[in-house]
């Protein structure tokens, strides 16, 4: 038996928002530690990795590991039936082929139950080693969102350059060129507004803005985002979900022909 209850439907809605443009179907892997999901987009260029540890739930029970194969669009439709303040419980039998969503209103006067059929999904799981990166940039999530949106009006590719001076995002296209530079401002009082750059050596990498724009759908989940970069390796874009998990996106770099 798997059963997990979270106090606010809003959180699960935000998680789905952050996943649905990248992934059609995905296995939600539930263990006694929590829920995780790893899925690549259909072109195998990017990957989303979600972790929601059990301590982020009001109630969590997972008798044995279970993978819930879920069509993200169907789950999104069901979650739209919940109010943001509703409590949500997910429930699945060990050998069952459905997952049940229960929404309870804050005043407990309304209870809705939706049953969704599970899918059999062949998951393509990638082994991604945890590693130190050459450069990391922590910045307000809304700032990163704005930069990706603004540079998309200029070109399809962004060059991210990290130097001692700061981090520079550059896009160029038929109509011209755009450059946005952020400087280290780790002295700003409010942590969520800080730009914190760590760097072992200068580097410059190019990425497709189309995917970065998908990643910024997670902006509502966290105040800050961290970009981790190493030459010739995929970019890691991480949004922390409070203190109980994260959503990480990986994007292979573009390499000059």
């Amino acid at each position: 038996m798997f059963e997990a209850r979270m106090a606010q439907a809003a959180l699960l809605k935000k998680v789905l928002e952050a996943v649905k443009d990248l992934v059609t179907d995905a296995n939600w892997d539930c263990t006694s530690a929590g829920i995780s999901l790893q899925a690549m987009d259909s072109s195998h260029v990017s990957l989303v990795s979600l972790l929601m540890r059990k301590d982020g739930f009001d109630m969590y029970r997972c008798d044995r590991p279970i993978s819930l194969g879920i069509n993200i669009a169907s789950m999104t439709k069901i979650m739209k039936c919940a109010n943001n303040n509703d409590a949500v419980t997910l429930r699945a039998e060990d050998e069952g082929d459905t997952v049940v969503f229960t929404f309870e209103s804050a005043d407990q006067e309304k209870v809705s139950e939706f049953e969704m059929k599970l899918m059999d999904i062949d998951s393509e799981h990638l082994g991604i080693p945890e590693r130190e990166h050459t450069a990391t940039v922590k910045m307000p999530a809304s700032e990163f969102h704005g930069i990706c949106r603004d540079l998309s009006t200029i070109g399809e590719t962004v060059q991210v350059s990290v130097t001692k001076e700061g981090v520079q995002f550059t896009a160029s296209g038929d109509t011209g060129k755009g450059t946005i530079t952020l400087r280290n401002n780790s002295s700003v009082d409010e942590e969520s507004q800080q730009v914190v750059i760590t760097m072992q050596e200068e580097l410059s990498l190019s990425f497709a803005l189309r995917y970065l724009n998908f990643f910024t759908k997670a902006t509502a989940l966290a105040d800050s985002v961290t970009l981790s970069m190493t030459a010739d390796l995929p970019l890691v874009v991480e949004y922390r979900i409070e203190d109980t998990g994260y959503i990480r996106y990986f994007l292979a770099p573009k390499i000059d022909d």
Partner: peptide, 14 residues
């Protein structure tokens, strides 16, 4: 134009 690499060039399927 830069070539878009795939993740499979960096990470193995497990």
């Amino acid at each position: 134009t830069p070539i878009q690499n795939e993740l499979l060039e960096y990470y193995a399927l497990v």
